[in-house]
């Protein structure tokens, strides 16, 4: 058993990724602060050692290309961090329970419900919000298509629809109106702008792929 574990440690070390190194760095920092001696430090990476519980977590990530480092209460959702701490109010809070899609953002290119994402889980990841979609004054084809098709009324769901729509096209789930409706079903629109939304995504899919 012990030798197996030892082997695991060795293979773990040889297979360390940049992210593991970064995480290791964080762990070392915490141990140093809590005053654990050098003998314990030598055991870092020993799989049978329990991980430390913390009340405040240092998290470092990129939002729309800009790096942020924050000390977070682990209760924070990614949505609340974006809106309340970083002033990025594009992602909306509709339900706060994963049910409406208004808070959709991309984490490492994948769409997620930011209200259901523990912000401490985005350490070292790349976040894209609606604020990061256009290139300067050049709108993203999905944004342009929503304007062209009048795909909104009040606009509250729109940032989430657009972020979900971009991901839907990139996932290759925008092949037909039927498939768009299925893969956009996590984004509700209280104003019922669905026909325009489906048409806008179909249009943007052509522009994005072309």
């Amino acid at each position: 058993m012990t030798t197996d574990r030892q082997d695991d440690v060795n293979s773990d070390i040889s297979g360390l990724s940049r992210r593991d190194v970064l995480k290791g760095g964080t762990a070392l920092g915490v141990l140093a602060v809590t005053g654990i001696d050098s003998h314990a430090l030598a055991q870092i990476g020993n799989p049978s050692l329990p991980a430390a519980f913390r009340t405040e977590i240092e998290v470092s990530f990129r939002v729309n290309g800009d790096r942020s480092s924050l000390a977070l209460d682990p209760r924070s959702s990614l949505l609340d961090v974006l809106r309340d701490q970083l002033g990025l109010t594009g992602a909306k809070k509709g339900c706060d329970h994963g049910q409406c899609g208004a808070c959709t953002v991309h984490v490492d290119g994948r769409r997620v419900a930011s209200c259901m994402t523990l912000a401490v889980q985005i350490d070292d990841l790349d976040i894209t919000t609606i604020e990061g979609l256009s290139e300067g004054d050049d709108l993203h084809p999905m944004q342009q298509a929503f304007i062209d098709h009048d795909a909104l009324q009040c606009g509250y769901c729109t940032p989430g629809q657009i972020m979900a729509g971009v991901a839907c096209v990139r996932e290759e789930h925008a092949g037909s109106p039927q498939q768009i409706r299925e893969y956009m079903s996590g984004n509700l629109c209280r104003c019922g702008a669905y026909p325009g939304i489906v048409a806008a995504i179909a249009d943007a899919a052509r522009a994005m792929e072309g």
Binding site: R5, D8, N46, P47, S48, L49, P50, F53
Partner: peptide
């Protein structure tokens, strides 16, 4: 929401040890 502490073990052995120690 109730306050909680957070740990992120790096592998399965550590996760089990973390759970066992936490109660």
């Amino acid at each position: 929401m109730k306050r909680f502490d957070y740990a992120r073990p790096a592998d399965l052995g550590s996760a089990i040890a973390t759970l066992a120690a936490a109660g």
